[in-house]
Design a protein around this nucleic acid. Structure first.
Length: 660
DNA sequence: ATTAGGG
DNA sequence: CCCTAAT
């Protein structure tokens, strides 16, 4: 149906005979299908049966795996249910089967180059990363309905696995998923235009000697979102992987480890242009619009898409050892060389970790909060203990047990969650160091309980535990269990986690990676932090990402300031945190910022930026616009700053588009 | 339940 | 961000 046959009909028949139905091929006709990867989509029924994905499901997932450069195909299984894998599968989901070419085309040849396998592994990881990212992005758009994605890796070459002990390990990584990732409002783009007089250069020289020094020795800029990189014109083409990662973070407020330049560029571009139609081969974003350099024009040609695939990745700077995931099929070797330990799917925090770890042989720098928390712990316990634990759970696990093993846990807001044994009520249970207790709701319940049962601690404790469990915060020693993801068994999952667990499927021939989606907000937990002053204060600051801000702004422009619940529902549907009140507060802040920060623009970005990322001027401008058109302009500084060129145009603009 | 404002 | 008053 949605089949898009075509292109190298080479092994077409073979696949079909094997019971596959090819549904998508993004292969360019020029590429050789020497080492194809086959995807098979399967749904996991509640009883554990695996049934072929429906066409609709296929369609849905199809978009997730458009891989234009690597030679692979996506096919669905036309066949029958594949049998039971587990009766623990409660949630239905998608199965994505990756079949290595070795399995298909070389099934007779048992001798598989270990290197190739390794390469395959790396490749799969990369793909998983991408699936994950796509999943996140998709989630943030609030579209999807299915809550799980499964990836099955057909291990027909299981005999090779001994040679690659890492495989099994890698399949068992948990992936706490993070929410977020909106796209930028097109409306912002316009306002940006007005101001673009002063706008110019590409951001390909993001390294100011001053910044980031503390973080990385490679001179890569800091990992904190740097909106400045998103301002003005962005030449994604010239960026290294690292820089792309930075840009990605700035755009989506989240780290990524996807090493594919093309993918990164496309994704970033999509985010920045709020378009899903980004298939350009050149990625220059100017004024939030995609500018195509040498080629035709921008954004369009949604389908066949990435036929020509100018090696933008070829812009590899020799200086930086960037992830050499290139296209074609020659990549593998390079990838192999990159076999650092790495988890299939951690989330931002550890992704960061990986990125850093990879570029520099250096342990991830603990976040401020982490240090803070650690110190708190230390104050109670012996400091040395804590330290060792940190190291242990942070890295030791990975390196010792296996290539990757469990990456430990990462809180969805990007912080590494180190488990420690704490004397909570003297029970000595293991709790995540940084785990935060669910905020408002449980607290309420908890309080209520305390009120009604002031004396029965057991009850309240149980309730608390229950509440925590409800949010997938394991208080028990399940921590390790969770990590291990015992084979042939699905981990109990809530909709709040994304994880990948390996299980032995039918006849032990399949490894299944489960990619459970997350509503994204597993982090609206809170931690109360004893302030040095004595009081204890809550400590959840969830930094607003650029994307969020832009979404907010766009929401305001669309529904009007004040309709926070509307905006919440419509524009922030996928953000479980960020209440309407939050939106309101943020808007208030934005207003304040937009009307105050103007004059000191140049002087500011020197030092102060280090701590707090400034909001890009275009956004502020837009905010001012909206404020003006909605009569929210603070009386004091009404028309002061506007004197310049942009404002006149703006005012005109705002008057005309005043009502929406 | 949602908003507006102050803290 | 939190809290509260007002609607």
């Amino acid at each position: 149906m949605e089949t898009e046959f075509g292109v190298e009909g080479n092994d077409e028949r073979k696949y079909e005979e094997a019971g596959f139905r090819k549904i998508y091929s993004s292969l360019s006709s020029t590429k050789q299908l020497t080492d194809p990867v086959v995807y098979k989509l399967v749904r996991v029924e509640g009883d554990g049966r695996l049934v072929p994905a429906t066409d609709d499901e296929v369609m849905e997932v199809k978009g997730l795996l458009i891989d234009e450069k690597n030679k692979m195909r996506i096919v669905t299984d036309t066949g029958q249910p594949m049998g039971c894998i587990s009766n623990e599968v409660s949630s239905s989901g998608m199965l994505l089967q990756l079949e290595s070419s070795e399995g298909l085309s070389q099934s007779e040849n048992t001798e598989v180059d270990p290197e190739k396998l390794h390469a395959r592994l790396e490749y799969i990881e990369e793909m998983l990363q991408r699936v994950k990212e796509e999943e996140r992005l998709r989630l943030s758009c609030g579209s999807a309905d299915y809550s799980s994605a499964y990836v099955i890796i057909d291990s027909q070459c299981s005999d090779q696995h001994d040679k690659l002990p890492a495989i099994d390990e890698k399949l068992q990584c948990e992936i706490p998923l993070q929410e977020t990732v909106p796209s930028l409002a097109p409306s912002l783009i316009e306002s940006h235009l007005h101001q673009s007089g002063s706008i110019d250069k590409c951001l390909n020289s993001p390294k100011k000697p001053t910044e980031g020094g503390a973080l990385t020795s490679t001179g890569v800029a800091t990992s904190k979102p740097d909106f400045s990189k998103l301002k003005e014109e962005i030449c994604l083409d010239n960026l290294s992987i690292k820089e792309l990662h930075e840009t990605f973070k700035a755009t989506f407020g989240r780290e990524t480890t996807v090493k594919d330049k093309q993918w990164l560029k496309r994704r970033i571009t999509m985010g920045l242009t709020n378009s899903c139609d980004v298939s350009a081969t050149t990625f220059i974003i100017k004024d939030n619009k995609l500018v195509k350099k040498g080629k035709e024009d921008c954004c369009d040609n949604g389908d066949g898409a990435f036929a020509n695939d100018p090696p933008t990745g070829a812009t590899i700077n020799g200086s930086q050892q960037e992830a050499p995931i290139t296209h074609g099929g020659q990549v593998e070797d390079q990838v192999v060389s990159d076999k650092r330990s790495r988890s299939v799917g951690d989330n931002s925090g550890s992704e960061d970790h990986h990125a850093e770890h990879r570029a520099v042989k250096r342990v991830r720098k603990p976040t401020k909060r982490y240090i803070e928390e650690l110190s708190e712990v230390e104050s109670k316990e012996s400091s040395g203990k804590s330290n060792s634990k940190l190291k242990c759970s942070g890295l030791g696990q990975m390196s010792s047990k296996s290539h990757i093993g469990s990456v430990g846990n990462i809180s969805s807001d990007g912080r590494t969650v180190v488990t420690r044994t704490d004397s909570l009520g003297g029970s000595g249970i293991q709790i995540p160091c940084v785990s935060r207790v669910r905020r408002s709701r449980p607290r309420k319940n908890f309080m209520a309980l305390l009120e009604f049962n002031p004396s029965s601690m057991s009850v309240t404790a149980a309730q608390l535990k229950k509440a925590l469990n409800a949010h997938n915060i394991l208080l028990d020693n399940d921590e390790s269990e969770k990590d291990r993801s015992p084979p042939a068994k699905f981990v109990g999952v809530t909709d709040k986690d994304i994880q990948i667990s390996a299980i032995d499927a039918v006849g032990g021939h399949h490894k299944v990676l489960k990619l459970v989606d997350s509503t994204g907000a597993s982090d609206d937990n809170v931690v109360t932090v004893p302030t040095s002053k004595g009081g204890i204060r809550r400590k959840h600051h969830r930094a607003w990402t650029l994307s969020e801000v832009m979404k907010l702004v766009e929401g305001v422009s669309r529904y009007g300031a004040g309709r926070w619940s509307e905006i919440k529902r419509l524009a922030f549907a996928s953000y479980s945190y960020r209440t309407s009140v939050d939106l309101k507060d943020k808007w208030r802040n934005l207003l304040k910022a937009s009307f105050s920060q103007i004059p000191s623009d140049k002087g500011i970005n020197c030092r102060k930026n280090a701590a707090s990322v400034p909001i890009p001027e275009p956004i502020l401008l837009r905010v001012r616009e909206l404020a003006a058109m909605q009569c929210q302009v603070p009386p004091s500084l009404n028309s002061s700053k506007g004197g310049g060129s942009g404002s006149s145009a703006d005012s005109v603009h705002e008057k005309q588009s005043g009502y929406l």
